[in-house]
Amino acid sequence: MLGVEAQKSPKGKWTMPPFDPRFPNQNQIHNCYQNFLDYHRCVKAMSRCGQSSQLCEYYFRVYRLLCPLSWVQRWNQQIQDGPFAGKI
């Protein structure tokens, strides 16, 4: 879906994502997955409207901090191939 250059971290470094009250526990797996889905939904919605996907940067930054790279690569491959379980 996105090339390697497009998936590099945006400018400005975060050491940890901001607190999200939807995910108050220490285990952040669901937070990782939800932000991955939110990012791809945001990009899809912005492209439909013909707008820049720069507004989706927040979700990108959060999932890149929380999700292991191997998961992200597997999910992106599944999105391209078709069997991805999440609804985007």
Rank of each mutant, 00 (worst) to 15 (best):
R61T: 05
R22M: 11
M1C: 07
Q78G: 05
R74L: 13
A45N: 13
L55C: 11
D20T: 07
C49F: 09
M16K: 13
W14F: 04
K8M: 12
V43C: 12
N31M: 14
C67G: 03
Y63I: 04
L69S: 11
F19E: 14
R61V: 04
F19L: 14
I88S: 02
W71T: 04
P17T: 08
E5C: 07
C56E: 03
Q78K: 12
E57D: 14
A45R: 10
F23S: 06
P83Y: 00
P68H: 13
R74M: 11
T15S: 12
P21Y: 06
S52M: 04
N76V: 03
Q73S: 06
C67R: 01
I79G: 00
F84N: 05
V72L: 14
D38G: 11
N25Q: 12
Q26W: 03
V43A: 14
Q28H: 09
Q54P: 00
W71M: 10
F60K: 15
R41A: 15
I88F: 13
F19H: 14
K8E: 14
M46H: 09
F36T: 02
Q34Y: 01
R74I: 04
W71Y: 07
A6V: 06
S52E: 15
W75C: 04
S53I: 14
K11I: 10
L2K: 09
K13Q: 11
V4C: 06
S47W: 06
Q78V: 00
K87T: 05
Q78S: 11
Y63G: 00
D38T: 11
A85T: 03
D38I: 02
G82Q: 01
P68L: 09
R74S: 12
Y59T: 05
Y39E: 02
P17Q: 10
A45K: 10
Q34E: 12
L37E: 15
Q73W: 05
